[in-house]
């Protein structure tokens, strides 16, 4: 898959089409969108608690996207992928739980 991209960068319109469909570019767009969304939530929009939980969840979703598409974990041995996703889920859940149980 990656070598396919590499070979198309030579020149011409074929290269440009593949850039638009390129999973790297698509995931970058998703990450930029998610950043803007969490920026919006963090700036004071929405109910305080829901917004913060949203911010944390979006952050770890972004982390997962970085791992899967940028670090190429989708093509890596399953165990790496699982460890990475496991870390994201566990840390996310712990942080949200600690935030929600903070009280007053």
């Amino acid at each position: 898959m990656s070598t396919h991209v590499g070979s198309t960068v030579v020149k011409g319109s074929a290269a440009r089409i593949s850039v638009v469909r390129n999973p790297t570019v698509v995931s970058w767009l998703a990450l930029m969108g998610a950043t803007v969304l969490s920026w919006y939530l963090g700036e004071g929009h929405g109910a305080r608690e829901a917004a913060t939980v949203g911010v944390i969840v979006v952050a770890f979703f972004k982390v997962y996207l970085v791992g899967r598409y940028f670090m190429e974990l989708r093509e890596a041995p399953q165990i790496l992928h699982l460890l990475f996703a496991g870390w994201a889920v566990v840390v996310c859940v712990v942080l949200v739980a600690m935030y929600l149980t903070a009280g007053d």
């Binding site: 969490s38 920026w39 963090g42 952050a59 972004k62 982390v63 970085v66 840390v91």
Partner: peptide
């Protein structure tokens, strides 16, 4: 470096 910053950004700047 990128993904660690993503979480730091959420915790230090956005959490309220």
């Amino acid at each position: 470096v990128d993904l660690l910053w993503i979480v730091l950004f959420a915790l230090l700047y956005l959490m309220r």
